[in-house]
């Protein structure tokens, strides 16, 4: 890969669909790529169809990893739905592992938020009914 941007329409997969039938991993494969000049401990990823919403949250959670020397994201052009994420790590830690851990941590965080929100809402509703 040599960092050229190849125009490819990313089909919208239904995120709210209860069934996973539509989800084809090869579509997701096209969403992410590594920009040129990457090593095992320093790489820039280009993620298609994402913006500050995921970019900043992912940047934060990757910063929380002590193996990370540097992490930052950018949106190179406002009219292209692409997000670049740069990760550099200490001591030969693989950037792929760091990104993977970041995604897992963020998902775990979402589960906690969902759970706490639901309990807190139900408590509030019960209290109001009394």
């Amino acid at each position: 890969m040599n960092g050229t941007t190849e125009e490819k329409a990313v089909p919208i997969v239904d995120p709210t669909s209860a069934t996973e039938e539509e989800i084809d991993p090869s579509i997701d494969r096209d969403r992410i790529r590594v920009l040129s000049g990457a090593t095992d401990t320093a790489a820039s990823f280009q993620i298609d169809g994402e913006d500050h919403t995921l970019g900043n949250a992912l940047r934060y959670i990757i910063h929380k990893n002590p193996d990370v020397e540097f992490c930052g994201y950018s949106i190179p052009h406002p009219s292209e739905t692409k997000m670049n994420l740069r990760i550099q790590t200490y001591d030969g830690v693989s950037v792929y592992d760091v990104l993977d851990k970041g995604l897992q941590d963020l998902m775990a965080m979402c589960d906690v938020v969902e759970e706490k929100f639901t309990t807190s809402r139900d408590e509030f509703v019960n209290r109001m009914q009394e």
Binding site: V13, P15, P25, D28, R29, R31, D100, L103
Partner: peptide
């Protein structure tokens, strides 16, 4: 969104 990126990464 995270799952999507993770599938792509895997």
């Amino acid at each position: 969104k995270c799952q999507r990126i993770k599938r792509g990464l895997d």
